[in-house]
Design a protein around this nucleic acid. Structure first.
Ligand SMILES: [Mn+2]
Ligand SMILES: [Mn+2]
Ligand SMILES: [Mn+2]
Ligand SMILES: [Mn+2]
Lengths: 219, 219
DNA sequence: TTATAATTTTAAGTGCGCTTAAATCTATTA
DNA sequence: TAATAGATTTAAGCGCACTTAAAATTATAA
């Protein structure tokens, strides 16, 4: 395909599929920071090119082609992130934007060599799984958002949404990174915020922040 | 700037400046494999944006801005090539095209980290010098084309034009790579071809090939 | 159920980077 | 020097990826 815009649309679609495997144009427009009209335009092209199923005023589905394409771009993105973070030591909050460009400028051969050089990493530095050459993604059913934990439960941070502006910078500031253990001290009804204990400190997370941090329970 | 086309034009201009620091549109059209009309179009934009000095029907010069921009892209390109070749082991004839894309998708910060990781290489895998952070390029006055050698002179291959389609693949096939010693056995007048000895074999190089291989004399 | 709000599409328009064809300018050479 | 060849620019047009404004459709809530 070799088309930066279309590639970004496809990954945005894939990342935002709901429980029945559909997305709405409005959400895409938000995620891509683009007008609704532009989205409609592109949907026609993606449909024409066989990457999505699209009927006017209906939700969007990926075709088999579209899905495997999206996963390939995601694979590129995440492998680049590992390289930037581990090999070059670039900071947590910069690698996503950098990978967002590199993902469109590298052949499959390059990505495979890079994967080998990095010794076949399974997750990117934000905890997202890296699809293998065939597009297979390890499923992570036990991964849940902090918002789904109950009071007094303990958990380990295993993933953080890399897609939310300035979230990573904020998390670094309050001492949250992958592998950290947290404990729910309280869940506040009126605004959905959550009080957690981390590193011996009490920290209050807004609902929005908490819903973008993912953990695995510790029994 | 963040513009792939303009960046490729600028490096093409820089790489093809003549002895008085000028290029003609026609040559650019050839190198970029694009119509003359498209070149004229882009020259107006590059001029508007302050990267070149351009007057209708006259040759093109780079402005100070244009030159430092071009050298920065060249720096990116060549550092990427070193990485692809040395770190990942990608083959000699594939790295150029890959770098041709990556050069447009990497921040200065990334390039600097990469340069450090590679331990500050001075030349790319084709023998071209890598501009430093300030745009300074080591000059290589003693580097000459094979065509400039006389009969019976010996020399070491130090650079090969990475810009000529299929040249590298061909050279690999006949056993020419950087560091190899050659000796001029004969120069044929009628077609400008040159007979050289390399690796104990006699090989005939066409004028076109010979003019794209660069050497340093051995006394 | 119907008014209103929200979403989505259509319409019109823009700059980009390209194309081919025609016009214009410059260089070569008879 | 005048004809011609070659280089360059202009003109018209195209698809892409976006915009804003208006129209159409669908969802929500009184
Ligand atoms: Mn990311
Ligand atoms: Mn991207
Ligand atoms: Mn190169
Ligand atoms: Mn390029």
């Amino acid at each position: 395909m070799e088309n930066i815009s279309q590639e970004d649309y496809l990954t945005a679609i894939f990342r935002n599929l709901d429980d029945v495997g559909e997305v709405k144009p409005n959400l895409l427009a938000e995620k891509l920071e683009i007008s609704n009209a532009a989205v409609t335009d592109m949907l026609k092209k993606l449909s024409r090119d066989g990457f999505i199923d699209y009927k006017k005023y209906k939700s969007i589905k990926l075709t088999t082609d579209g899905e495997s394409y999206a996963k390939n771009i995601l694979r590129r993105h995440r492998i680049w992130e590992v390289f930037l973070y581990k090999t070059l030591g670039m900071s947590w909050d910069k690698i996503h934007d950098e990978a967002e460009k590199l993902e469109h400028s590298s052949s499959d051969e390059l990505i495979n060599l890079l994967e080998e050089f990095l010794d076949y990493p399974e997750v990117d530095p934000h905890g997202y799984p890296i699809p293998d050459k065939k597009g297979k993604i390890k499923d992570s059913k036990s991964v849940i958002a902090i918002t789904e934990l109950n009071k007094n439960e303990s958990a380990k941070v295993v993933r953080v949404n890399d897609d939310v502006k300035n979230l990573l910078t904020y998390l670094t500031k309050i001492g949250i990174n992958l592998g950290r253990e947290i404990k729910i001290k309280d869940k506040l009804e009126f605004d959905g915020s959550i009080l957690i204990k981390i590193n011996g400190n009490d920290v209050n997370l807004s609902k929005k922040v908490a819903s973008n941090i993912f953990v695995e329970k510790i029994k």
